[in-house]
Design a protein around this nucleic acid. Structure first.
Lengths: 357, 357
DNA sequence: CTGAAAGCGCTTACAG
DNA sequence: CTGAAAGCGCTTACAG
């Protein structure tokens, strides 16, 4: 953080730029003053004769005029833009949130500007600094961040600086930073899933969870365990298996469960859809039909849940809505530390038919 | 295209914005003129005494100064920004390209600005108009576009307008618009895969291709057929099956092949990894081990190829590099209608062991 | 090496 | 309803 401030992002050799049509061009073409042209172009402006407006609009159309957003921004002080900081756009989870952000921003007349922060929290700090120069209306952070406590403090400080300048910050994701947050309802979703399975007649779940301790995994497990306890469902000692968060991880874990605990569970819950799909295959390979003897449910309803047979029961976390909600929070500020959390949607498919208990 | 020009993207009620530190603030704090402060902050500027530069840098750091990118842009004429138009960020294919774009833009000191164009080519035209106002250095278009010929002409016209204003345009994807293009090497990749399989001893491929006629699918099939013909591999009449472009589509197609043409093919090529993974399951269900009796290969090496057992042979299209290359093309213009195409990488895994023919 | 001045393309009081 | 003028925060010749 002691690197040269403000000196690192000069643009590279800008080509000589032929001129685009300018407000003055439009004004001249329409035979009016720049001030009038500006007003005529502003739909919100009241005091404009419709005849002049028509002439100006016509001239603008003819010239292919597009107002220079930068000039406008230096006049008004802020850019019609929301900046999005996303750890990795290739993660389908982030992509879904980002999609919601883009849509909502567009609906609010703002464009979304991105910067990747693949390289951890320090990268994120750097990006916040850079983005500040753009004077966006808001910054949306998404994805989980890892990094030292020191880095986290620096990040918060940099964001605070931005809010002091009038910027708005909102988080789309986990509830871990002191700003307005659209929370991904993981815990709640896991609980809702378990409640639905209970209603369908399931009583003895087995769990396949990631072998790392990410916040997301913990929330899922907490949600499952909490609902199970509340409803009086038993989760046996050996019924929680850790495995790599992949299809094969799910396969191996389920294979183990089927071999070692036959008859001791009536439904397998996996922390991700990919793991659940692996588990389905393992069950097939063991001579079981997913859904027939034992139910299977995934989580996140992101990919492939409808592509398998039978369809995989899962939970739709409405991530695009989370992204959109973050934008709304940011744009309707100030109101620090608000929380928005959607109701996740349990999607019951063929892998969890009702039990005739 | 006859809607009000230039009147549709005024920003919503901008909050009263407390002031951010400004160049004048820095200059005053350092006791120098604005001009000097500006130069001191510009690493490329030669004529600055190091003592003054130090004082200015120090003041900037203290004040948390970030140059106002908009003001700079209105002075220099262009924004340090590349605009990316992407049809759907949730598509992993697009996400991968976009990732490359973000990285490369960042490396060039530019930020990437996005707009989604989910709603087809007309949406894209609208977005180009809007983006023009931002005066980005370049616009990168990615994803396939569908739309009428009229719409396509309008899009080209709008893009031409942008280039006349000094903007640069590059395409990352299919070669279908008259601008510099970083081409996704689908056809070439399919050919390379077939050649590699030939080398491994395979002689009689069966094909599973999507049941729709997207350009991407056609290129894959062309690449396969061409290489097979060149190498003298036989593709029987009934050996090309069309199926939905999903895991289950691949499953059903492969199940059919195994049942109807036993012994008539030694490797199954699927147009996507998802279809190939479905095909693997179908083979297992038919009592075959993928790779043992019959080889399997996917395409695109996007997701899950390493998560299955054995690992799925596939082709890495290096989409992130395609995205990065598009940025480079755009930034090193002008040079109309250049084509860059990378060598795709065939990734041989367990599903296609060498045949002891 | 440094500073005063002009200018980038807008918007917005302020006077008509 | 319309226009002349000032100002937003920068950069860049132009003179020292």
């Amino acid at each position: 953080m002691t690197t040269d401030p403000a000196t690192d992002d000069r643009s590279p050799g800008a080509p000589d730029r032929p001129s685009a049509a300018t407000l003055r061009d439009v004004a001249e073409a329409a035979g009016v003053s720049k001030a009038s042209a500006s007003r005529a172009l502003d739909p919100a402006s009241q005091y404009v004769s419709s005849s002049m407006r028509a002439r100006v609009l016509d001239a603008a159309e003819r010239l292919g005029y597009r107002p220079n957003a930068s000039a406008r921004a230096t006049t008004t002080g802020a850019t019609a833009m929301v900046a999005v900081l996303v750890s990795d756009i290739r993660d389908p989870y982030n992509a879904e949130i980002v999609h919601g952000v883009i849509e909502q921003a567009g609906a609010s007349g703002l464009v979304a500007t991105f910067a990747g922060t693949d390289h951890g929290i320090d990268d994120e700090i750097r990006v916040v600094r850079m983005m500040r120069g753009l004077r966006p209306h808001a910054m949306i952070l998404t994805g989980t961040r890892s990094g030292s406590t020191v880095s986290r403090a620096s990040l918060e400080e940099e964001l605070a600086r931005y809010t002091q300048e009038g910027g708005r910050v909102a988080i789309a994701g986990d509830d871990e930073l002191p700003f307005d947050t659209a929370v991904v309802p993981r815990r709640r979703g896991a609980s809702a899933l378990v409640a639905e399975l209970f209603r369908l007649g399931y009583r003895t779940p087995a769990l396949i969870r990631p072998d790392h301790d990410a916040e997301a995994a913990r929330q899922w497990e907490d949600g499952v365990v909490e609902a199970a306890a509340r409803l009086g469902m038993r989760i046996g000692r050996g019924a929680v298996v850790r495995a790599p968060m992949t299809r094969d991880g799910g396969y191996d874990a389920a294979a183990g469960l089927v071999a070692e605990r036959p008859g001791r569970f009536d439904v397998v819950l996996a922390a991700t859809d990919a793991m659940a799909i692996g588990a389905m295959t393992a069950m097939r390979d063991a001579g079981l039909t997913p859904g027939a003897e034992i139910g299977v449910a995934g989580f996140d309803d992101a990919v492939g849940t409808e592509d398998v047979t039978p369809g995989l029961t899962s939970v739709d976390l409405a991530l695009a809505r989370v992204g959109a909600a973050a934008v709304e929070l940011a744009l309707t500020g100030p109101g620090d530390l608000r929380r928005i959390e959607f109701e996740p949607r349990v999607v019951v498919r063929g892998t969890t038919p009702a039990r005739s208990s």
